[in-house]
Amino acid sequence: MVAHSPRRPRSRARRRAIAALRMLAALVLAGGIYALVSPNAQANAPGQLSAAAQEGRALYETSCISCHANNGQGVEGRGPSLIGVGSAAVEFQVETGRMPAAAQGAQLERKPPQFNSDEARQLGQYIQELGGGPEIAFQGEQAPKGDIAHGGELFRVNCSSCHAFSAAGGALSSGKFAPSLEPSTDRQLYAAMLTGPQNMPVFGDNQMSPQDKYDVIAYVQNLKSDTDPGGWGLGRFGPVTEGVAIFLFGMVLLAFAALWIAGKS
């Protein structure tokens, strides 16, 4: 037996081994490209989420997933996709108790929140890391200081047509409404302007800069804390309650006065 000739055709076993290797390389290549191109593959890996986002993910998977589906993809006709909504929207919806929703209707209402604000922020962090989106521009509960008078001008032009001059809220069409701003915190006000929840338009940063938003927040918070110099404000609903007051209080009182004084003879 002499040494193997190079011309000698490869053995069947060897050919098979090489084919298997090629197949493996192709698979690795395809998988690698897929892994690079697909964002989900990366985000799916729990190891790459921050600690807060992982906490949020755990909350998400017990309370949100039934409507918004796995990884916030959304379910047609049940809950929208959360990819790209950002942490501001999540914090607003969860902190005001609107999410998790009790039922689908013309509009979700504020109710006692299911999660505390830490949990709401964890949820927001998870959605933020999942798909990005607008975030509240300040840390902490208090918005940076704003100019009340300028905020008032912005509020009257942009907000009062729905929320009313007094921020007490107003009706929209078909059962929708602009809610009262009475219970709103700085963060909620900022998030609402930034993300435009439900029927509210979005006031993006190019429309209304963060400083403008701080001004509006300063005006609204001042409006709420401002005592009415003229006495009881009658809910600050305008002439409707004033008309009710003149009849129920003024006219009724004077009718009794007339009864009394006419009876004294």
Partner: peptide, 14 residues
């Protein structure tokens, strides 16, 4: 440009 919601006249014009 400023028109608040809940803009009403006084009751006798309402």
């Amino acid at each position: 440009a400023v028109v608040s919601s809940g803009s009403q006249p006084d009751w006798y014009v309402m």
